[in-house]
Simulated scan of single mutants.
Amino acid sequence: MTETTVAGVLAELAALEEPGVRAVNENHGDDHGVNLGKLRALAKRLKTQHELARGLWASGDSAARLLAILLCRPKAFERAELDAMVREARTPKVLDWLVNYVVKKSPHAEQLRVAWSADPDPVVASAGWALTTERVVKRPEGLDLPGLLDVIEADLKAAPGRLQWAMNSCLAQIGIEHAGLRARAVAIGERLRVLEDYPTPPGCTSPFAPLWIAEVVRRQAGRPAPA
């Protein structure tokens, strides 16, 4: 793809910019103003174009990077490319989409999970923990789940921002998916009280791990909600 094509797509994205959308996104740490429904519609029209995706990512624009994630071929990236991309993805939505839509589909996902989880950069480490949570739920074989709980118990309280959220999600999923470790996961959550006061809209599940675990287990068992 030529630079002109990349420039043309960037111009389309600029035309989709809405100040109201940007204001809402900025409240969540994101820095673009493109409605995601419209961005997905543009991706559907453009279809998969891996080299165009690379060019859009290189622009550094967050909306362009989200579009790039939808246009790329996840398995076409080398491990070093994905590592660099995660280190460049500093806004929550770009990082979330990159991990969930690209890295999780990559043949390098497990190697990156191990490397990132121990990374000194907390944003990179949060990506590693997100991949670990994926394994806790879908492929727990070979994971040291009690060992993960040890790390969570020691480090969750002091973990910054996104890393704390990712580790807390792993704690909750261990409690939800692994009945033998549920009591310990709940006890850790009760002791640390992480996200206990997080504002949760009516009808949504609290991210406070003991409540999260109890609610999902209740739903899976088909039990009625408590009065």
Results as ranks from 00 to 15, higher is better:
A118R: 14
S59L: 06
C204I: 12
T200K: 00
N25I: 10
D31W: 12
M85V: 06
L56A: 01
E81M: 05
D30L: 07
C72I: 07
L112T: 02
L112R: 03
K157N: 11
A118M: 06
E134M: 07
E190H: 00
H28M: 09
L16A: 05
L71H: 14
R223L: 15
L145A: 10
L39F: 05
P146K: 03
A23D: 05
N27H: 08
E12W: 10
A221R: 14
P202A: 14
L71S: 12
L71N: 14
F208Y: 15
G8I: 06
A115W: 05
R54D: 10
V99P: 04
L211T: 08
S126I: 04
A115M: 07
P202L: 12
W212M: 14
L16I: 00
A43P: 10
G189M: 07
I213L: 08
E88H: 02
R22M: 00
T48V: 15
W116G: 08
M167I: 09
D30V: 00
R219L: 11
D144Q: 04
A11F: 09
N27C: 12
G55C: 07
A166H: 04
N100P: 04
G189E: 07
R223F: 11
H28G: 11
C204H: 15
Q49D: 12
G222L: 06
L211V: 12
